[in-house]
Amino acid sequence: MNTYIDIGINLTNKQFQNDIDDVVQNALDADVSQMILTGTSVRNSEESAKIARQYPGVLYATAGIHPHDAKSFDAQSISKLRNLLTQKHIVSVGECGLDFDRDFSPRNIQEVCYKAQLELAIEVQKPLFLHERAAFTRFMSITNEYLPQLPKAVVHCFTGSLQEAKMYLNNGLYLGFTGAISDSKRFDHLKEVIQYVPLDRIMIETDAPFMLPKNTPSNLLKKYHERRCEPAFLPFVAGTVAKFKGISLDKVAEETTGNARKFFGI
């Protein structure tokens, strides 16, 4: 039987506030055996940790400050994240990085916040869950300063170019792919990226409730929640990877699950 690990879900999102139990059960019924909640601020990371604690062995969480929330970064932030990361079910530092697309936080503050989290990951030796949008050059410049000491890192929700993918891979990073890969109108170039990236460097995620896979059957959307992405839809992300690579779904499930288990130590 295929099993999957969803490396990035946003269960704290208000779209899930009334049916977390159902969402988790839907995922388990769809053979998504483990899920990792994404922490995006100190407060959100604490909330994610609390939810994950209620589903031992099924839910895990990250602890970090998303570049959108970098403006909330203060003198206590790193010690609070460090405290969270002592917990066994908190498996990664992040989501952290740079976002020059939206600029919800000033760029200089984003950089300070990102560097502090890179240093924290080196200190606690837990892997990194990274975010980069429209900031590739600066992102790589900063990351390269720390690279020799960094633990493993995954660039989540990758939608960049083949050239960017090659640069990440050459620097030892993993890539996380979402339902965006099935959106041929917006992200047609990702077919070539998926074909290039070795399977042992790929992990899959839904980024639920966002990034709904275009190949999700309409009857499932009606059954659950129209237009809301769920971790139960992760097999459709895997299916697109299988299609693009010309390999079996079983192989994609086996490899991406193994990658995630090893990477996050779960």
Rank of each mutant, 00 (worst) to 15 (best):
A52W: 05
A52S: 11
A52I: 03
R53G: 14
R53F: 14
P56V: 05
V58M: 08
Y60P: 00
Y60R: 02
A61C: 12
A61T: 03
A63W: 05
G64L: 02
G64A: 06
G64K: 02
G64P: 01
I65P: 02
P67Q: 09
H68A: 02
D69E: 15
A70Y: 01
K71Y: 13
S72L: 15
F73T: 00
D74N: 14
D74S: 10
D74Q: 08
S77V: 03
S77P: 04
I78W: 08
S79F: 12
K80L: 14
K80T: 01
R82F: 12
R82W: 11
N83A: 13
L85M: 11
L85K: 01
Q87S: 10
H89P: 06
H89K: 04
I90W: 03
S92A: 14
G94F: 06
G94H: 04
C96L: 06
C96P: 03
G97V: 09
G97Q: 06
G97S: 11
G97L: 07
G97P: 05
L98G: 06
L98Y: 00
L98P: 02
L98C: 02
D99Q: 09
D99I: 02
D99E: 08
F100I: 05
D101N: 15
D101Q: 13
R102E: 07
F104H: 14
F104W: 12
F104L: 15
S105I: 02
P106G: 10
N108S: 13
E111S: 12
V112C: 13
V112P: 12
V112T: 15
Y114F: 15
K115I: 11
A116Q: 15
L118E: 01
E119T: 12
E119K: 15
E119M: 12
L120F: 11
A121L: 05
A121W: 07
I122D: 02
I122A: 07
E123L: 11
V124G: 09
P127G: 05
L128N: 04
F129I: 06
L130D: 05
H131P: 04
H131S: 01
E132M: 13
E132S: 13
R133Q: 06
A134C: 14
A134L: 13
A134R: 14
A135C: 13
T137L: 14
T137Q: 15
R138G: 08
F139V: 10
F139R: 03
M140D: 03
M140K: 08
S141L: 14
I142R: 12
I142L: 13
N144Q: 14
E145A: 08
P148V: 11
P151Q: 04
P151S: 07
P151M: 09
K152F: 12
K152H: 14
A153P: 05
A153V: 07
V154T: 08
H156Y: 12
F158E: 01
F158H: 00
T159Q: 08
T159E: 01
G160S: 09
G160A: 08
G160D: 03
G160P: 04
S161Y: 06
Q163A: 15
Q163E: 15
Q163I: 12
A165S: 06
N170D: 15
N170L: 09
N170I: 00
N171D: 04
N171F: 04
N171M: 09
G172F: 01
L173E: 00
L173S: 06
L175N: 08
L175W: 09
F177H: 06
T178H: 04
G179Y: 02
A180C: 14
I181Q: 02
I181M: 07
D183I: 10
S184K: 15
K185S: 11
K185Q: 13
R186I: 04
F187S: 05
D188N: 14
